[in-house]
């Protein structure tokens, strides 16, 4: 079974919520990657979403944009990232989800990308600018047993959510805001109902992401779904040396298990 799918099943079996932190590969140098992944693994994260820097990240807010620019200034390429993950794969046990824009993968070549992901032990990919209509171009990734995570958003109609969740693997990434990634003070009142609607329709776990940045957000959000993804805040914590706050966020997801 796919390593991510297995990790999510374990979560469910233990009646725990999933917590997936996002980090930008190469931010602070790729040599930092192993220690960051091990830190998150030890802290109790379910999996890690590993961002691939791209020059034109239209789905991302300022924090992730800046992290991407720092990484690109370090000369990070997708090839380097996959080589590094391959190099450390025996030491890092946590499932790794690559999050990259379609052009990075197209430029790499679909066949080579799929092969290199397999040898690096990548569990899943998120391509935020590829809706289901364009998924066919990336089908070789799925065929190889790597999960292609699908996203639903607040603007997706019920019919569309049904269509998206029908063929979903791994988990459904439920975007919690109309907007780009980044910390928010508060969410719209429609969030809880939306997450419940997605959960009713989805055959796989539903994880919420975008804008989740405090332990309170985490506790509130997981009441209506199976887990959370936290990005910008994690990047900020690593950037400013406040790793203890990362542990607080992860703990917030473990503290509250209500059935």
């Amino acid at each position: 079974m796919n390593k991510l799918t297995m990790a999510l099943k374990e979560c469910q079996a233990k009646q725990e919520k999933a917590f997936i932190p996002y980090i930008m590969a190469g931010d602070g140098g790729l040599e930092r990657l192993k220690s960051q992944l091990l830190f998150l693994e030890d802290g109790g994260a379910t999996a890690v979403e590993l961002g691939i820097p791209f020059s034109d990240p239209v789905a991302d807010g300022p924090v992730i944009q800046q992290a991407g620019i720092r990484s690109l200034e370090n000369g990070t390429t997708l090839k380097d990232v996959l080589n590094k993950v391959k190099e450390i794969k025996d030491e890092v046990k946590i499932p790794i989800i690559l999050m990259g824009y379609s052009n990075s993968i197209i430029a790499y070549g679909l066949k080579e990308f799929t092969e290199d992901c397999l040898s690096a032990g990548i569990s899943a990919c998120i391509i935020p600018d590829v809706p289901i209509e364009e998924e066919a171009m990336f089908s070789s990734i799925k065929t190889a047993g790597i999960v292609l995570i699908r996203l639903v958003t607040l603007t997706s109609s019920k019919e569309r959510i049904t269509e998206i969740t029908a063929g979903a693997e791994g988990f459904i990434y439920a975007v919690t805001i109309k907007g780009i990634t980044g910390a928010r003070d508060a969410f719209g009142g429609e969030l809880g109902g939306y997450l419940k609607k997605v959960k009713e329709l989805s055959p796989v776990p539903v994880l919420a992401g975008f804008g989740i940045s405090t332990p309170e957000h985490v506790r509130d959000t997981i009441q209506s779904c199976d887990g959370v993804i936290v990005g910008s805040k994690i990047i900020e914590c690593f950037e400013t040396g406040k790793e203890d706050q990362i542990n607080e966020l992860i703990q917030a997801s473990k503290g509250l298990v209500r059935k």
């Binding site: 809706p131 209509e133 364009e134 958003t153 603007t155 997706s156 569309r160 975007v175």
Partner: peptide
């Protein structure tokens, strides 16, 4: 019908924009 000119075109956008 899907907005492609041969291999080109399409809709490579975040899901939030699909409705619009």
């Amino acid at each position: 019908g899907t907005g492609h000119f041969g291999a080109y075109g399409g809709r490579f956008v975040p899901e939030t924009l699909m409705a619009a």
